[in-house]
Amino acid sequence: MSRIDETFARLRAEGRTGLVAYVTAGDPDLARSAEVVRAVDRGGADIIELGVPFSDPLADGPVIQRAAERALAAGTTLRGVLELAARVRGGVRAPLVLFTYANPIVRMGVTPFAKAAKASGIDGVLVLDVPPEEGAETYAAFDAEGLDTIFLLSPTTSVDRIRRAATLGRGFLYGISRLGVTGARADVADSAESLAARVRAETDRPLALGFGFSRPEHVRAAGAWADAAVVGSALVQVVADQADNPDLGGEVERYVRWLRS
């Protein structure tokens, strides 16, 4: 049972809605990013997603685009993100999921990447632009190293493909609750509930719902239909706003704790 499996088993046993927190690794730089990850963990996130900054983040909205630009400008690379993971791993309770575009891992080589990620204490990997159909080699390499492959599901995903993702995926499924790029919204889309219902009808695999969530009531709403809620852009915005605050960690921790309130 992987660390991610254990986390969801515990959440279900406790009847609690999990919080998956996304941060762009290396934003504003790797040193402060380590502080941010530790603060997210202290704030009570159940899973931490580390976004690997990429030059062309075509599925991301402005907030995460800017974060990626800051991280790249600070010299963050995929190797740097893995080193960050290795550095924080010992002191962080939550499983770490790498959230990345394909090209950085293709450039490193899928198998060398999988080995390095495992060695760095990464628990799972989500490759944004490698859907199940394109990922035979990639996901076999992850399986071979015991890394959980996390797949995205969206309101446009067919029932057949939900089944495929549930079979090929490990850990949990990440449901995109609305069409569009990443970014905080004021409300929870109606499409979130219907997506969750469609997924639930096909599989018992844990489901985290995301895209647009920024407030505790969003997390609670997601909890009615899914195992966990993902908060990304809103948290990345807190990091952006507080980057130069000496108490960056404290601000991040308070925000994450509030999300769970």
Partner: peptide, 10 residues
């Protein structure tokens, strides 16, 4: 191939 985000696969 078709290396697109999940929402665009369909």
């Amino acid at each position: 191939g078709r290396f697109v985000p999940e929402t665009l696969v369909a």
